[in-house]
Amino acid sequence: MICTDLKLKWTLVIVLIVVPFTVLQAQCYPWLEQITRQEQLTMGCDNLVVKSRGRLNVTSLDHILVDHKHKLLYCYVPKVACTNFKRVMMVLTGESSATNLVEIPATLAHSENSTLRLSQLSRDEARACLKDYTIFLIARHPFERLLSAFRNKFVDSLPSSKYFQARYGRHILRKYRVNASRSEIQSGTNVTFQEFVHYLLTEGITTNEHWTPIYDLCSPCLLNYTFIGHYETISEDTKTVLDMVGAPPIVFPVTRSGHTKEHLRWYFQQLSIFEIQALYKMYERDFKLFGYGLEEMLGYDLA
């Protein structure tokens, strides 16, 4: 069959010309979708006219994890199932022998030495990996990812939330809440979504990796990504990537307990259309590079 070997990559582009779409769709749907995503990324990058193309600073690629055994590179994006993917990388690299990924503590998966980073390699080694290895990332709707970060770090009662409330919550309340009391500022809790957005619009969206755009984290217009996954099809995309590199069978846990998408419209209705437009402008590259829009949320698109 045409798609028996998923390592055939873009030979499917040629095959599309001679084989009916419906047949291929049934046989290897992930690659049909992948062609669309790659075209979206290529056209988006061309439209951006990236002036720094070819001038990549390898030392800045600290979000790209390395698996030499399977020749795999993964650019992790916070709030896009990156905890589970870091667990996968630990198993692939032999850092963990767990058969059930959720048995690996999240704190261990996020530790600095859990997986080798591309930025830790020499310049020549890093460039060789970028040339020869399979490299992938998983994208997510920018506003859904942003809301997930807000709810996880400022609404949920989790140990990790305490750091964000102390580090960012106090600052946001002090600067963006009118007549905030001393006790409110001291606690750093109960930051509203509108206050959080005001903070981003005023101080920028690269102050923390959890709301920094994928464009800035993964350099998708400078690196030749082999595979672009989407959060919405994460199960299928994960299987495809692992099959590509000949990984052992791994059951990827898909957990979406936050149900962020269900709350998206409610939270964004708290913002003015001008705030939404300004926020969209800040994440515009992620929207356009990965094929996302606002029509489902607003009823129309801003692009």
Rank of each mutant, 00 (worst) to 15 (best):
L116C: 06
S119N: 03
T107A: 14
R53L: 14
L56R: 00
L118I: 00
L16N: 09
V102M: 08
I35F: 01
L61H: 05
C3T: 13
L65R: 03
V80W: 07
G94S: 02
G44P: 13
V80T: 12
C28Q: 10
S122R: 04
L32K: 00
E125G: 03
Q34A: 07
A81Q: 12
Q25K: 12
W10R: 07
N100Y: 09
L12P: 03
W10V: 09
I35Q: 03
L65W: 07
K71H: 15
M89T: 09
P105L: 08
P105W: 02
S52Y: 04
N100P: 03
V13H: 03
G94Q: 12
T83Q: 09
T42D: 09
I104H: 01
V66M: 04
L32W: 06
T4N: 14
P105D: 05
L41F: 04
L12K: 04
A126V: 02
V102Y: 02
Q34P: 01
H63M: 06
T93M: 06
S114W: 01
L12W: 09
L108T: 15
E103L: 14
Q27A: 08
L108C: 14
G94N: 01
D46G: 12
L118E: 00
V80H: 00
Q27I: 13
L72G: 02
S97I: 15
T22N: 10
I17H: 03
L116I: 11
S52V: 05
L72P: 10
V66T: 04
T99M: 05
G44M: 06
V13I: 09
K9V: 08
K51T: 13
N100A: 08
K7C: 14
M90Q: 01
I35M: 02
L101W: 01
L108H: 15
T99S: 12
K9M: 06
V13F: 03
N113I: 08
I17D: 01
L118S: 00
V88Q: 06
P30M: 07
W10C: 07
R117N: 05
D67T: 04
T115I: 10
G44S: 11
R53Q: 11
W10H: 06
S111I: 10
V58G: 03
T42K: 15
R117H: 14
V18Y: 04
V66D: 06
K71Q: 14
R87P: 01
